[in-house]
Computed example of a mutant assay.
Amino acid sequence: MKYFSFLLALVLFTACGDKSISSEAELEAMEASRVAQESAYENMVAAHDRIMPKMGEVTAAQRAIKEQLEDENLPEDRVTLLEAAYEQLEDANDGMMEWMQDMKPLAELRESMDNDAITAHIRDESSEIAGVEANISTAVAMAKELVGDHSGHVHGAGEDHGHNH
Rank of each mutant, 00 (worst) to 15 (best):
residue 5 S to Y: 13
residue 6 F to Y: 12
residue 7 L to F: 14
residue 9 A to N: 08
residue 10 L to T: 14
residue 10 L to P: 10
residue 13 F to E: 04
residue 14 T to A: 15
residue 14 T to Q: 15
residue 15 A to Y: 09
residue 16 C to H: 10
residue 17 G to M: 06
residue 19 K to A: 14
residue 24 E to Q: 08
residue 26 E to F: 09
residue 28 E to P: 05
residue 29 A to D: 02
residue 31 E to S: 13
residue 32 A to V: 00
residue 33 S to L: 13
residue 36 A to D: 06
residue 36 A to N: 09
residue 39 S to G: 06
residue 40 A to F: 01
residue 40 A to N: 05
residue 43 N to A: 14
residue 43 N to W: 07
residue 44 M to H: 05
residue 44 M to E: 07
residue 45 V to R: 10
residue 45 V to W: 04
residue 46 A to R: 14
residue 48 H to P: 00
residue 48 H to G: 06
residue 48 H to D: 12
residue 51 I to A: 09
residue 52 M to R: 15
residue 54 K to M: 15
residue 55 M to Q: 10
residue 55 M to F: 06
residue 58 V to A: 02
residue 60 A to T: 03
residue 65 I to W: 01
residue 65 I to P: 01
residue 65 I to C: 01
residue 66 K to D: 09
residue 67 E to I: 10
residue 70 E to R: 14
residue 73 N to W: 03
residue 74 L to Y: 05
residue 76 E to K: 15
residue 79 V to I: 11
residue 79 V to M: 08
residue 85 A to K: 03
residue 86 Y to V: 01
residue 86 Y to C: 01
residue 86 Y to K: 09
residue 88 Q to A: 13
residue 89 L to A: 04
residue 90 E to G: 08
residue 92 A to I: 00
residue 92 A to G: 04
residue 95 G to H: 00
residue 95 G to Y: 00
residue 96 M to S: 04
residue 97 M to F: 02
residue 97 M to S: 07
residue 98 E to A: 09
residue 98 E to D: 13
residue 98 E to H: 09
residue 100 M to P: 03
residue 103 M to T: 03
residue 103 M to G: 01
residue 109 L to A: 00
residue 111 E to P: 06
residue 114 D to G: 04
residue 118 I to W: 00
residue 119 T to I: 02
residue 120 A to P: 03
residue 121 H to E: 01
residue 121 H to G: 00
residue 123 R to M: 10
residue 124 D to F: 04
residue 126 S to F: 05
residue 130 A to E: 09
residue 132 V to N: 03
residue 132 V to L: 04
residue 134 A to F: 09
residue 134 A to C: 02
residue 135 N to E: 11
residue 136 I to D: 01
residue 137 S to C: 08
residue 144 K to F: 11
residue 145 E to N: 15
residue 146 L to F: 02
residue 147 V to Q: 03
residue 151 S to I: 02
residue 152 G to A: 08
residue 153 H to I: 00
residue 153 H to V: 00
residue 153 H to G: 12
residue 154 V to N: 12
residue 154 V to G: 04
residue 158 G to Y: 08
residue 158 G to H: 10
residue 158 G to D: 12
residue 158 G to W: 10
residue 159 E to M: 09
residue 160 D to A: 15
residue 161 H to I: 03
residue 162 G to Y: 06
